[in-house]
Design a protein around this nucleic acid. Structure first.
Length: 820
DNA sequence: AGCACGCCGACT
DNA sequence: GTCGGCGTGCTC
């Protein structure tokens, strides 16, 4: 037998793989993708992923041995491994960071050192006070963790105490490794074997219980639910206790039955995922002629192209086309991944998909508990789940046979992860994933990103248009209201107020969009002008009325609302500007009869927060929905006839080369919420600049006009899609150091790449977050002229070099590839 | 990342 | 004199 070694990926931000020795008895079991437990350093025990198995012993050190193997069947398949490696290279992060993002923590193993009394301890050994205290505590409970010990001794660092105790042979340390995933267990009961064997023994049982009516009741009820008389084997599946218990049947008599061995209790492992049997309904709708044509075009284009963009106006019925395509792919035996930008969107779509795909449908998003995520992961591996609807992290799931990936609302920025690394874009990564599976990608959007449309319109990808709304629905009418001319009532122009009132009278619903949560973006003292700022960030604190606190939306810091000005003592503190919270309050004041609901991050924190709000709006228990971005995306409500848009001016002026595109997307998406079926909706946009060019495009729903204008600008100034954009963010708590380091790095990069390709450094709009000063450097790389792989390598080297300089060793540089 | 080791200032 | 603060370097 030969000694094998394995290079493993540790779930840490380390650049290299680490080599371990494989114990001989595991030689044939350790395969790439398996999880193994390894000791790393003196204290730490980690779950690592096997990347490679080989026969080369390391020359410079002796490899430690793997402690144990967790999987017989690799947790990650070969496609995942190569996909993850691509992500780490393309997005310039460590492989361990990808593993961390990919594996639900239920598949990671937690290990923590536990302290135990040494049975051979000599009680005479002298101990200091702290040691004695700890020993005393250990005698009462047999083990404790390091953090338990820290709590007992009221100190931060207990390592010295513990290492002293180890030296004195008073305690021993062991690593407790626990699998985090816990299957859900259901307790059931069934008749004991001797009674359920045949009908004679059953009849005998019933006759013995004739004098005990309560117990007989239970047995008869059980037999009614589980007809053992007809089929003795039915008893094996048993019944949940709760089904036997109701008002009349007491638990006491059931316990007696169990005690007397008539019933027996047993446990089974059940799925946390929806475990109801879903009857699969053949969809009763038929694609419209337009939809059908689009579908046929997509299928046709897939013959020659791997990626197709479906550019369909809001309400054109893209989902039905998706469903049709999914069914086709499934019937070929392949898996489908349906990506959505946010959980808010899953609820409505899942409801529809569930009916069609039943238990073959899996859902994956951040509000799922870890155990639920592990079950989705396992469901895909077992083949039970064939269609996955999920948010960006679903690209990491263990697919082995993808046929189609749908990226709905392709332009959405939430496909891009910003923090922590890997800073990947799930839309773009999905294309690479699809390539590895030889699968097709369908991108869908009413307002495609400029980059996507560029590729679709120049023939690199396929392009299919759907420019009519489904059925008789019409595009909404968009009205601009000049906030400087139309006399406002609070935040409302008279026009919007009147329309809102009329909408309520017609018993229809309205959506008001204000992309700012909280009550007011800041407070200000009327006497001295003081504005409360965050202590650790360069922003003013947002006033939250409901929670009565000031909070920083960047670091999460919050504090009590001052009753008097901290600078001059004046009690005249006013709120300035408005967020969703104030808007909600104002609507209620000017329209007291309206039932108002707010939907933003603060009202949707809980798992079913979204669902509850959406349900009550759908059931018409709410007339007006006030919300942030969340209300703009893909929600379909039939009774919404008015949409009001506030404070779009702020977006127009946002200093970014994508701001026009963003304004168009948001305005178009939110407008799409207005009007369904045969009703024409109305959209009112409040702005102080109704003559801004972007509004022309929005009102006419002129995507092509916008695209032509933007693509010309992008080409002229060399922005994506004509280049790739990499952003480096330099962070340090010392402002001067951040400046110096960023200038040094930028100059070095400029000397290597030329001054045209490197912009900055410059402070971002918010130049301090969590006490760290930020400096941005943008690197623009033309697609055809530059070897991007080489340049990325060079950038990584330069960052590493910067950190080797004594002065800059603590300067952190973050890399964001394809930054948005 | 997180732990050990080492060096220096504040206390029993 | 020691405790514990943080800077530096290493982990197969």
């Amino acid at each position: 037998m030969i000694t094998l070694f394995t290079d493993v990926i540790l779930p840490l931000p380390l650049p290299n793989l680490y080599t371990y020795r494989i114990p001989l008895e595991l030689n044939e079991y350790v395969k790439p993708g398996c999880r193994v437990i390894v000791q790393f350093g003196k204290k730490r025990v980690l779950t690592a992923i096997v990347a490679k198995v080989h026969e080369n012993p390391p020359k410079l050190y002796e490899a430690k041995s793997i402690l144990s193997l967790l999987d017989e069947v690799p947790a990650l398949n070969a496609t995942q491994l190569s996909f993850f490696q691509w992500i780490s290279e393309y997005y310039m992060c460590h492989q361990g960071e990808v593993i961390n993002a990919a594996l639900p923590s239920g598949l990671k193993i937690s290990s923590e050192s536990r302290i135990q009394l040494n049975p051979g301890f000599n009680n005479e050994t002298p101990l200091n006070e702290k040691e004695a205290l700890l020993m005393q505590e250990l005698r009462t409970r047999d083990t404790m963790t390091y953090s338990d010990a820290a709590v007992i001794l009221q100190v931060k660092s207990i390592y010295l105490v513990i290492s002293s105790l180890i030296k004195k042979e008073a305690v021993i340390i062991f690593e407790e490794i626990k699998e985090k995933y816990k299957p859900k267990i259901l307790k059931k009961i069934r008749l004991s074997e001797k009674y359920a064997r045949d009908n004679t023994s059953l009849e005998y049982l019933v006759s013995t219980l004739e004098s005990k009516p309560k117990q007989l009741d239970h047995v008869l009820k059980y037999l009614a639910e589980v007809p053992v008389f007809q089929n003795n084997e039915l008893n094996d599946a048993g019944l949940t206790k709760s089904k036997l218990l109701d008002e009349e049947a007491s638990e006491g008599s059931l316990k007696t039955l169990i005690k007397n061995g008539i019933f027996e209790e047993f446990e089974i492992i059940v799925s946390r995922l929806d475990d109801k049997e879903h009857s699969i309904v053949i969809p009763n709708y038929k694609l419209s002629e337009n939809q059908n044509t689009a579908k046929e075009q997509i299928i046709d284009l897939f013959r020659t192209k791997d990626i197709v963009l479906l550019h369909g106006v809001t309400g054109s019925g893209k989902t039905e086309i998706y469903i049709d395509l999914i069914q086709q792919v499934l019937s070929n035996g392949s898996q489908v991944l349906y990506l959505l930008p946010e959980i808010a969107l899953t609820t409505q779509i899942v409801f529809r998909l569930r009916k069609i795909f039943g238990n073959k449908l899996g859902i994956y998003h951040s509000k799922y508990s870890d155990n639920e995520r592990v079950e989705v992961w396992k469901g895909i591996q077992s083949g039970d789940l064939q269609v996955i609807v999920g948010v960006r992290s679903s690209i990491f799931l263990p697919f082995d046979n993808l046929g189609l990936i749908i990226v709905d609302e392709e332009h959405e920025t939430s496909y891009k992860q910003y923090d922590p690394a890997p800073r990947y874009n799930a839309r773009d990564a999905a294309m690479v994933l699809a390539l590895k599976h030889h699968a097709k990608v369908l991108l869908g959007s009413a307002t495609p990103s400029i980059e996507t449309y560029y590729n679709a319109s120049n023939g690199k990808w396929g392009l299919v248009r759907l420019d009519k709304r489904f059925g008789s629905a019409q595009m909404p009418e968009i009205l601009l209201v000049d906030t400087k001319k139309d006399f406002p009532k609070g935040e409302f122009t008279a026009t919007l107020f009147n329309e809102l009132e009329a909408t309520l009278e017609r018993k229809e619903q309205a959506i008001l969009f204000q992309n700012r949560r909280g009550y007011a973006p800041y407070l200000s003292c009327e006497d001295c002008g003081y504005v409360p700022q965050c202590k650790s960030c360069d922003v003013s604190l947002t006033y939250h009325m409901f929670k009565q606190e000031l909070s920083c939306h960047y670091c999460g810091h919050h504090e009590r609302v001052p009753t008097s000005c901290p600078a001059c003592g004046s009690s005249k503190i006013k709120t300035v500007g408005f967020g969703t919270e104030k808007l909600e309050e104002d609507v209620q004041i000017i329209l007291p009869q309206a039932r108002v609901q707010r939907m933003d991050l603060d009202t949707t924190r809980s798992k079913n927060g979204y669902q509850k709000i959406i349900n009550s709006f759908e059931n018409e228990e709410v007339d007006i929905l006030v919300g942030t971005q969340m209300v703009t995306k893909g929600l379909d409500f039939d009774k919404v006839s008015l949409v009001g848009v506030f404070d779009i001016d702020r977006m127009i002026h946002f200093p970014d080369f994508r701001s026009n595109e963003r304004v168009f997307q948001v305005a178009t998406q939110v407008s799409g919420r207005a009007g369904r079926k045969d009703k024409k909706g109305k959209v009112i946009i409040q702005t102080s600049q109704p003559h801004h060019l972007i509004f022309e495009k929005i009102i006419q729903n002129d995507y092509l006009g916008l695209y032509n204008q933007e693509i010309a600008e992008r080409e002229k100034y060399n922005y994506p899609p004509f280049c790739r954009l990499i952003k480096l963010v330099i962070k340090n708590e010392d402002k001067t150091l951040a400046d110096k380091a960023s200038v040094a790095l930028a100059n070095k990069l400029k000397s290597k790449l030329g001054t045209k390709r490197v912009l900055g450094p410059e402070p971002p709009v918010i130049d301090k977050i969590r006490n760290q000063y930020l400096r941005d450097i943008y690197i623009k790389l033309e697609k055809d002229k530059v070897d991007i792989v080489k340049v990325k390598k060079m950038i990584t080297e330069e960052i590493t070099f910067l950190n080797t300089l004594k002065e800059f060793r603590n300067v952190f540089v973050m890399t964001d590839v394809d930054t948005l």
